[in-house]
Design a protein around this nucleic acid. Structure first.
Length: 460
RNA sequence: GUGGAUGUAGUUCAGUUGGUUAGAACGUCGGAUUGUGGUUCCGAAGGUCGCCGGUUCGAACCCGGUCUUCCACCCCA
């Protein structure tokens, strides 16, 4: 015997039972995406590393899975480089492909490459796995599915509004209570400008993102550690201490950021967005969260993050506007906005909230018992008949003991069994057994259609 | 990438200060019942104790390394 088989760290197999539940999530999401006029695309699992590198910040580059070149890849590395054991240097020579890290960057690449055939504004959705060489833990996997919706080629804030409607629609259908947090990167830039550290926007936002978690003092300490001046940090305090409802916060911010053109722009964008939101009935809570930063450094406008109110698992959905993602691929001035649903985390939330209970476990409605060669022809004709009535049916492939066949039906939760042996064949009937009541009756072949309509289809 | 916990049958878990042949439940298979599942009864199969090395007369147990899973940090869906 060889050693026990296993799968790579952070990856998972999905059982039939899990797949039914996952498909329910994907179907729900897809249905809503289509309802709002989005169309599907797919891109390859692997991209050229030149497409992926530098798009996700330093941290992101480290988390990219790289694919070793085929063939004699070491011939391009000379002895000196080999001797220095500089992994980064060597890997760039022997790996030119990597697994996709998200769906947004491949999408931007797709748009640039297919601009001649795309009608703008382009509304697409994409549901595919992505890979990150992260250390796995709760709600974090190395292979997971993202469900992205993006509009590219339109600056209108109506798109941001539409995405929030989609979020609300999907989570309402899935019966997950959520909070949608919204912020705007321009405001964060304005704040960085306001405190006199415009270049440190990343450090500043990463630190204030943790405000909720670690508190104000720890945030200030982290900023000091990052080398921010005491003056800058003290200037930041009124921002961190902002209180009140959305409008109050925005008004106060408008006063503080009065000298920052970008900041003012961000505030006006948020005001417009909240006006749209205010005019619509939503099930989810929507709030302005100035501490919301999000790591991806390509966002330039709105930033959106969605959290479950009942399960603590990080964000289950996130996104924002990126003004020039296609620019790095040579197509300037095209703005896009999109969000991504984390299907695996949504699954975990639904499991924890026990919201899958009503989902049907078996898809097979009728099992036909196999008695042997002589009876097979008759059984197969019934099988065809059932399927022609749109009844999902199967014929047990081996003529083993009845007990075994019935246990199979039992284990698969198949609600009906059809028994057709010598007796039944001679009379052109079948015996139908209802597995939950144990009740049995004989049905003439000519009455099968009525039986299906009256009994099997009725209980669905 | 940093720190902590974990790993024993298909699964969930017992396993005495290191001492004969490593147990249970569930599941699987066979039988009670050759045309009737779920309940019951009887029986059987199933283990390189994660992997590699060390200490010891002797290791599931002690030590080192490694991998997996889980948890926290970093970061993130």
């Amino acid at each position: 015997m060889s050693s026990k088989p296993s799968i790579p760290k952070g990856t998972r197999d999905f059982s039939t039972d899990e797949m039914l539940k996952r498909e329910y999530i994907f179907e729900t999401i897809k249905k809503v995406f289509r309802l709002y006029g989005y169309q599907p695309i797919e891109t390859p699992a692997m991209e050229n590393l030149t497409t992926l590198l530098g798009k996700y910040g330093e941290e992101g580059d480290k988390l990219l899975f790289r694919i070793l070149n085929s063939g004699d890849f070491l011939s391009s590395v000379n002895d000196e480089e080999m001797g220095r054991r500089d992994t980064g240097k060597i890997s760039s020579k022997i790996c030119e492909k990597g697994l996709r890290y998200d769906l947004t960057v491949p999408f931007a690449r797709y748009v640039v490459q297919h601009r001649d055939e795309i009608v703008f504004p382009f509304k697409r959705y994409q549901i595919q796995p992505v890979w990150r060489a992260d250390r796995p833990q709760k709600g974090r996997y190395r292979e997971f599915f993202q469900c992205d919706v993006d509009v590219i080629g339109s600056d209108s804030l109506l798109n941001e509004y539409e995405l929030i409607k989609i979020v609300d629609d999907i989570f309402s259908r899935l019966k997950i209570a959520t909070v949608v947090k919204i912020n705007n990167r321009k405001i964060l830039a304005g704040i960085a400008e306001f405190i006199g550290e415009p270049d440190r926007i990343i450090d500043i936002t990463v630190a204030i993102d943790k405000l909720d978690k670690i508190g104000m003092e720890a945030v200030n300490a982290e900023l000091t550690g990052k080398g921010l001046s005491a003056e800058a940090i003290s200037n930041l305090q009124p921002v961190l201490q902002l209180q009140g409802n959305t409008e109050e916060k925005l008004s106060r911010l408008a006063e503080l950021l009065v000298n920052s053109e970008t900041g003012i722009k961000g505030i006006s964008e948020l005001r417009t967005l909240f006006e749209f939101i205010g005019g619509s009935a939503l099930n989810c809570e929507v709030e302005l969260d100035l501490t919301l930063a999000r790591g991806l450094n390509y966002y330039t406008g709105a930033i959106i993050e969605v959290k479950s109110k009942d399960v603590s698992i990080g964000s289950i959905c996130g996104g924002g506007r990126y003004d020039n993602l296609t620019g790095v691929f040579g197509m300037e001035g095209v703005s896009g906005v999109g969000i991504s649903f984390g299907a695996d985390r949504i699954y975990d939330v639904l499991i924890q909230l026990n919201l899958f209970s009503e989902l049907k476990v078996s898809s097979t409605e009728v099992l036909i018992v196999n008695f042997g060669e002589k009876e097979t022809k008759y059984a197969l004709s019934i099988l065809d008949m059932l399927r022609s009535f749109d009844v999902s049916a199967e014929f047990y492939p081996d003529s083993v003991k009845l007990k075994k066949q019935m246990s199979y039906a039992d284990a698969k939760k198949i609600p009906y069994i059809i028994i057709a042996g010598e007796d039944e064949i001679s009379k052109s009937i079948v015996t139908v057994k209802n597995m939950s009541t144990g009740e049995q009756k004989t049905i003439a072949l000519k009455d099968m259609k009525t039986f299906v309509a009256d009994e099997i289809k009725k209980s669905e």
